[in-house]
Write a protein that binds this DNA or RNA. Structure first.
Length: 572
RNA sequence: GCGCCCGUAGCUCAGCGGAUGAGAGCAACAGCCUUCUAAGCUGUCGGUCGCAGGUUCGAUCCCUGCCGGGCGCACCA
């Protein structure tokens, strides 16, 4: 792939030419080869001279001058210019771009696939919502991002494992069972309310009915909470998880594993990790000060097992076990992540709500302590989704029972529109989802713009056959052809940049760049489509050159949509 | 009080660990279908990048302090 090879060539030149300047590997880390914002500045541009000038002890432009001749020697380079404060701008030969187009068509889905810079196995953990009810729209954002990140990492050449943590061991399950039991009793005509802090959602009525169908009145006279918990836990969790899995499936997401917290606690992970941290002097028995900013009437200092988060500059230490000796959420988390490490994963990505920032920060420190590395744990925080219904904000609360269900939204706008829309905004921007607008705006949703481009490219191929024009033979194309218009060249330029997108987006774990690239490429396609007629039975050779470009665009467009988890339709 | 996120065109948002005259989509306005899908194309309009300092040859981007919005803050999840 041209971009990758050229990038390596540039780094090679830099290292050779500046070998005696005492530069370290790290100095080259900031050197980037990118497409200039302004296309009149060429096809690619590097900041190398500016980034390295200071270390080398030369003025940026002078350093650039020194390097230009070497760069000119690269076969695909047509011309090199030094611009502004010291940018080195490259214009590539159109024949080289055509070569990239041909490569893209030939390689298909393999085009843009990279070899990971290091072989560490990656695990992406996402969704992971508690199995206490259906998914709401905010979790949908998590699901879409996690899945796209996993796709991206795979495309970048990593081995990726997708996992959902089923938190079936905490106190919320106890509450769930109590709520379910109340609904169950209601089915038998008893005047019982769902507990104050329980789950009032109507889905539990259906689940209670399933329980009644299965067990009849077996639990009507059972009041022993522990027995109910023991007997109904698995049933309740499974039923709720089924609701979640249905939505996950609608989004075309598949996990490699639903990891059960409950099962993990049958192993010694918890004990082991605490011992490890204790041996490092990071775990001790102590008390926590009263919480700030929030009145707690019944605060009493109690001796707990604590993780020394303050050692890492955090304001408070973190409890690993509560006063009853049961692992806290944080405690479970370090055990779970220790488990991931034990399974051989060394790149741990977790898509997690920003409201849990307080929990993933100490966790990152614990993982740092366990591995001695800072680049193992990568939380991807995302802002909550705010929902407008009839112009009014909807308070998202599972407890209040007025959540906006993902399944409802998907029914209204479809998986493609939902996934693409979620990926058009970076995760740390809070997103307002206007339900009325989502339906009404369907036609102006950018996903249709991109899909339409793909459909057009397919339509042209069908038209070709109808006109009796022979299919394109890639090996007989002439790279030096003059049949490539500026519109077609612009498309090829995007195709050439696709590997750069994969490289950069995967490194930054930023899948929203995929949708921006897709819109950009689609825009170039539509623009070219309007500017020039592609099919011309009287000039088959020129037609073939144009069709080759169209095929390349189609292949890349399909691939980038695939990474987003969005369909690439052949017709619309 | 502390912590995390955000504040860029009327609206929704990009701007990839600093740099070549601030971008896209939508909305508004003006054009383009006897010719490959007009769910499209072409053009116009539109921003003192929340405010104030600082670092630099240069800041939307980095640092500090404000202002505004969202979220979180024991042994809840």
């Amino acid at each position: 792939m041209l971009y990758i090879e050229f990038n390596q060539f540039i780094l090679g030149v830099l290292k050779t030419k500046l070998a005696d300047k005492g530069l370290a590997e790290a100095d080259f880390a900031n050197v980037v080869l990118e497409s200039p914002k302004d296309e009149t500045h060429g096809d690619l541009s590097t900041n190398a001279a500016m980034v390295l000038a200071k270390k080398v002890g030369m003025a940026p432009r002078a350093l650039a001058e020194m390097l230009v001749e070497e760069f000119k020697a690269y076969p695909a380079v047509d011309s090199v210019e030094i611009a502004g404060p010291g940018f080195i701008n490259f214009r590539l030969k159109t024949s080289a771009l055509i070569g990239q187009g041909i490569e893209a068509v030939k390689q298909g889905a393999a085009y843009g696939k990279l070899h990971a810079p290091d072989a560490r196995k990656a695990m992406v953990e996402y969704v992971s919502i508690n199995p206490t009810g259906p998914i709401h729209i905010g979790h949908g954002r998590n699901a879409v991002f996690g899945d796209a990140i996993a796709n991206l990492l795979e495309k970048a050449g990593r081995t990726v494992w997708r996992e959902y943590l089923v938190n079936d061991a905490g106190g919320q399950i106890r509450v769930l069972v109590k709520s379910l039991h109340a609904r169950y009793l209601q089915l038998f005509g008893q005047d019982v309310n769902v507990p104050e802090n329980g789950y009032p959602g109507e889905y539990l009525i259906d689940i209670a009915q399933m329980l009644k169908d299965r067990d009849g009145d077996k639990w009507v006279n059972m009041t022993e909470e522990e027995t109910l918990l023991h007997e109904l836990r698995a049933f309740a969790v499974e039923a709720c998880l089924d609701l979640i899995k249905t939505d996950i499936k609608t989004l075309h997401i598949e996990f490699d594993r639903y990891f059960s917290e409950h099962e993990m606690h049958q192993t010694s992970r918890m004990k082991d990790v605490v011992k490890l941290l204790r041996d490092k002097g990071l775990v001790y028995e102590g008390t926590l000060p009263p919480p700030k900013g929030k009145e707690v009437a019944d605060y009493k200092p109690v001796e707990l097992t604590l993780f020394k988060a303050t050692e890492f500059g955090l304001p408070e230490d973190q409890a690993i076990f509560n006063r009853a000796g049961i692992p806290t959420y944080f405690g479970q988390d370090i055990a779970y992540h220790y488990d991931k490490l034990q399974r051989g994963y060394e790149l741990l990505v977790t898509v997690i709500g920003i409201d849990q920032a307080g929990s993933f920060t100490p966790l990152s420190k614990a993982i740092e302590a366990l591995t001695g590395r800072k680049d193992v744990y990568h939380p991807v925080p995302y802002e909550m989704v705010k929902v407008l219904r009839d112009g009014q904000p909807v308070k998202l609360s599972k407890r209040a029972g007025n959540i906006v269900l993902l399944s409802d939204v998907l029914e209204e706008v479809g998986s493609d529109a939902f996934r693409f829309t979620m990926l058009t905004v970076k995760p740390t921007t809070s997103l307002t989802f206007d339900l009325a607008l989502a339906v009404a705006k369907t036609m102006e949703n950018p996903v249709f713009y991109v899909q339409y481009a793909h459909a057009r490219l397919c339509a042209v191929e069908r038209q070709r056959a109808e006109l009796g024009i022979a299919p394109v033979c890639l090996d007989s194309l002439d790279p030096e052809t003059k049949d490539i218009s500026s519109g077609a060249r612009a498309v090829l330029r995007e195709v050439m940049l696709y590997p750069a997108l994969i490289e950069q987006a995967s490194r930054a774990l930023e899948p929203h760049r995929l949708t921006f690239y897709a819109q950009n490429l689609a825009s170039k396609v539509h623009s070219w489509y309007g500017a020039e007629k592609w099919l011309d039975a009287a000039n088959v050779q020129a037609t073939h050159h144009r069709l080759a470009v169209a095929l390349a665009a189609r292949s890349v467009l399909a691939d980038v949509l695939n990474l987003c988890g969005v369909n690439a339709p052949e017709s619309m």
